Simulated scan of single mutants.
Amino acid sequence: MNDLGLDLELRLVRYFTVVAKHLNFSRAAEELHLAQPSLSRQIGRLEQRLGARLLERTPQGNHLTAAGRAFLPEAQDLLRAANRAAHVARAHAAEGHLVIGYLDDLIITPAVSELRVRHPQATIETRHLTCQTLLSFEDGQIDVLIGRTPFTFPAGNLWTKTLYEEARVLVVATSHPLAGQASVHVNEVADEKPYPCTAPTVDGWMVHRLLGEEPQQTRPVEAYEDKLELIASGRAIGIQPAGDRRTLLHPGVTTVVLDGAPPSDVVVAGRIGEVNPLVQDFSDIIVDRCRTRPVPAAR
């Protein structure tokens, strides 16, 4: 019997999982940085190779067929297994290979530089991640991650070490009545209603619309810059870690000390069962460098 699995292109399998996630070829093509007609052709190639229709395209939208629903978890397992295999191979390379992911405005240069000095023959890469690209860590494309909580992955698959804590601050427009306050308690803004946000809150943000104002848009607020723009326009307020200095880049917003809010942890994270020795070396370096750190203040 011909083994179809040996002839499957992982690239096409990945395309299918992204389309299945969105059930929208336009959004899937945008995530994959492909033209929509090209993506449709690639999914057609996969369906032809499998001998099964995976997606039903109707005027009302796209839907997974019975075959598509059955294939999806297998496809996801296949991609995870392929990434793990590549990851294990990299980890056992004689010279070493490490990909370090980092979120928000966190600076990892000193720790990365020290790791490169310790392992001059190793290939050490860094990648800035966003809400939309964070899954590359779960999929094995990133070996170790530096970020602010909260972010979520499958239970039991992740270890974390807290590097330091950051208090949270309120972010408001410079014209907002709270902008001149020395501090504000979280209870004073607890009744605000959130704008829709489909992406994980990996940066610790909680963006709220102003009390009594109906949202003027229904699209999810995902990009950090869009959140700042909403706040600067007076249509929203935000809560973020005090150490996140990206608000300094926007002249229309300011921060106020926020009392009563739980802190945000800056952590180093890795996958349980990690076999790459460079992960532990990098973790040790950055933990040691973060033992003493000044507490950021609001501006």
Rank of each mutant, 00 (worst) to 15 (best):
R84A: 13
V112Y: 03
A35H: 15
A111Q: 09
R84C: 04
G68E: 08
S113H: 11
A29E: 12
H97M: 01
L78G: 10
S38D: 10
H87C: 09
E74R: 09
A52V: 02
Q42M: 11
L98C: 04
G68D: 12
L54C: 05
F71R: 10
R27I: 07
D104Y: 07
R80S: 11
A85C: 04
R57I: 07
N62F: 08
G96W: 06
R84I: 14
H92V: 04
R80I: 11
L79T: 13
Q76G: 00
L39G: 05
A35D: 08
N83H: 11
A67R: 10
H92F: 12
V88Y: 12
L79N: 13
L54Q: 05
L32N: 08
E114K: 10
A86R: 14
P73T: 04
A70V: 09
E30K: 01
P73S: 02
A82D: 14
A28F: 05
E74Y: 03
E47C: 05
G96K: 04
E114I: 07
S40R: 10
E74T: 02
Q76W: 00
R69F: 13
H97I: 00
L50A: 15
G101H: 11
G61H: 09
S26Q: 10
H92P: 02
D77H: 04
R80Q: 14
T58R: 12
R84G: 07
A70G: 05
A66I: 14
H92W: 04
E114S: 04
I43F: 05
L39N: 11
D105P: 04
S113R: 15
P37I: 00
R90A: 08
L46W: 00
L115K: 01
R57C: 06
A70C: 07
L72I: 02
G51V: 08
S26F: 06
H33G: 02
A75E: 03
L64M: 15
L72A: 07
S40K: 14
R53N: 15
P73Y: 00
A52G: 05
A86T: 10
L115I: 03
P73H: 03
R27E: 08
Q42L: 06
H87R: 13
E74A: 08
F25D: 10
R41C: 08
F71P: 14
A93E: 14
A67P: 13
L78W: 13
S26V: 05
P73A: 04
L46R: 07
S38G: 07
L46I: 00
L103K: 09
L115P: 01
E30M: 00
Y102M: 06
R90F: 12
V99S: 01
I108P: 02
R45F: 00
H87Q: 14
E30G: 00
H97W: 06
